[in-house]
């Protein structure tokens, strides 16, 4: 589970039937300080996030559990919109 910043939306008309009806978002995975963790990914959205939001994602097999459909071919799902991150103060 990791943080990300939604940077856009992705539209795919022709796709696997398991992906029908899902909102696909372009997400930049980030660390707590905002630095990128990897290159951009595409994640399905379970919580109505929008571009600019900081979100919390779950990856791997668990991504498909965020949706009702049993067979959702996914490896990343947005499961929360982050309001705030409170970090410890460095000495």
């Amino acid at each position: 589970m990791y943080l990300g910043k939604v940077i856009g939306t992705v539209v795919a008309s022709r796709k696997s039937p398991g992906l029908e009806g899902l909102r696909l978002m372009a997400v930049m995975p980030i660390n707590h300080d905002g630095t990128p963790r990897s290159t951009m990914i595409v994640a399905a959205d379970a919580v109505n996030s929008g571009p600019g939001d900081i979100v919390h994602l779950v990856g791997s097999r668990e991504a498909s559990l965020a949706f009702e459909n049993q067979f959702v071919p996914l490896d990343a799902a947005i499961v929360g919109v982050v309001d705030s991150i409170d970090l410890e103060e460095l000495p």
Binding site: H32, V82, D83, S84, D86
Partner: peptide, 11 residues
């Protein structure tokens, strides 16, 4: 543990 995350809209 270096911080806490608050989110209202979530799964």
């Amino acid at each position: 543990v270096i911080g806490t995350v608050v989110s209202t809209v979530k799964h």
